[in-house]
Simulated scan of single mutants.
Amino acid sequence: MLLSLIFTMPNAYSGEHLDSIPEEYQFPKYNNIAHPPINVEYKGHKGTALFLSNTFEDGKRNLEVYFLTNNNKELNKAYELYTYQYGNQELVSAFEYADKKTGDKYIYMLFKSTITPNKLYSYNFTELSLFIEEDGILRVLFFLGDNEFLSKTTCIDDFETDRRCEFSTKEGLIKYLNKEKSR
């Protein structure tokens, strides 16, 4: 019942990506679409990741990732990055990635933080795993766990020393993931 109220209330979205989200799934409390939705398919099941945010009076933002699945009938919050964390970060890219070795699929989000404008930037990424629950429903899960690979998630672009981050773009992150996951 609560979700039906959210879906039927007038929404506050604006922007070019509004048409890509069905009207009944637009949220009234968010004032930004942080990234266009991503449609994913895993083991015959389909879902859509929605990347939504708010910009608050102090200029800080939050990021919430929702996953729409079960023939567009079930909506789950998969991830939230609170304002104190997202305030100086930019979501550069989000994309689906398939591990060639295991066949597992993920949604990766690449973030950029400005340390010193036009001089120093840091990049990190977050992995959301796709999995099929016991009830047969496709879900997305954020789990850092003990994965040593994910703990090495920051690199720097330093324009004063010409040191460059190897995964500062979506293409660079895909290349980095292919290399790291093939080990």
Rank of each mutant, 00 (worst) to 15 (best):
L2E: 14
L3D: 15
S4R: 11
I6K: 11
I6G: 08
I6A: 07
I6E: 14
F7A: 11
P10D: 11
A12V: 00
A12G: 10
Y13I: 04
S14H: 12
G15K: 09
E16H: 04
H17P: 00
D19C: 01
S20I: 01
I21W: 00
P22G: 03
E23C: 01
E23I: 08
E24T: 10
E24F: 02
E24V: 08
Y25A: 07
F27Y: 03
F27I: 00
P28E: 03
P28V: 00
P28C: 02
N31T: 09
N32S: 10
A34M: 13
I38R: 10
I38W: 00
V40C: 02
V40K: 02
Y42W: 05
K43T: 01
G44Q: 10
H45E: 13
H45K: 15
K46L: 03
G47T: 03
T48L: 01
T48M: 07
F51K: 01
S53A: 02
N54M: 03
T55P: 07
T55S: 08
T55I: 06
F56T: 05
G59I: 01
K60N: 07
K60V: 00
R61W: 00
N62R: 01
L63P: 10
E64H: 09
V65A: 09
Y66W: 06
Y66L: 10
F67P: 14
F67H: 07
L68Q: 00
T69C: 06
N70V: 05
N70R: 14
N71T: 02
N71E: 11
K73A: 05
E74S: 08
L75R: 12
L75V: 15
K77C: 14
A78Y: 01
Y79F: 15
Y79R: 12
Y82C: 05
Y86T: 06
Y86E: 15
Y86Q: 15
G87I: 01
G87K: 15
N88K: 09
Q89K: 14
Q89V: 04
E90M: 08
E90G: 04
V92G: 11
S93P: 06
E96H: 05
Y97I: 04
D99H: 06
D99G: 06
K101N: 13
T102G: 11
D104E: 15
D104R: 12
Y106E: 13
Y106S: 15
I107Q: 10
M109A: 03
K112L: 02
K112N: 07
T114G: 09
T114F: 07
T116P: 01
N124R: 10
E127W: 00
E127D: 07
E127C: 08
E127K: 15
S129G: 12
S129L: 08
F131K: 15
E134Y: 00
D135F: 04
D135I: 07
D135V: 06
L138F: 08
L138K: 14
F142R: 09
F142Q: 13
F142K: 12
G145I: 07
D146Y: 10
N147I: 01
E148T: 13
F149H: 11
F149K: 12
L150A: 10
S151Q: 15
S151E: 14
S151P: 03
K152S: 14
T154V: 13
T154H: 09
I156H: 06
E160C: 02
T161I: 09
T161R: 09
D162A: 12
F167L: 08
K170Q: 15
K170H: 04
G172Y: 02
I174E: 15
K175I: 11
N178R: 06
N178A: 01
K179C: 01
K179I: 03
E180T: 13
K181N: 13
R183D: 09
R183A: 08
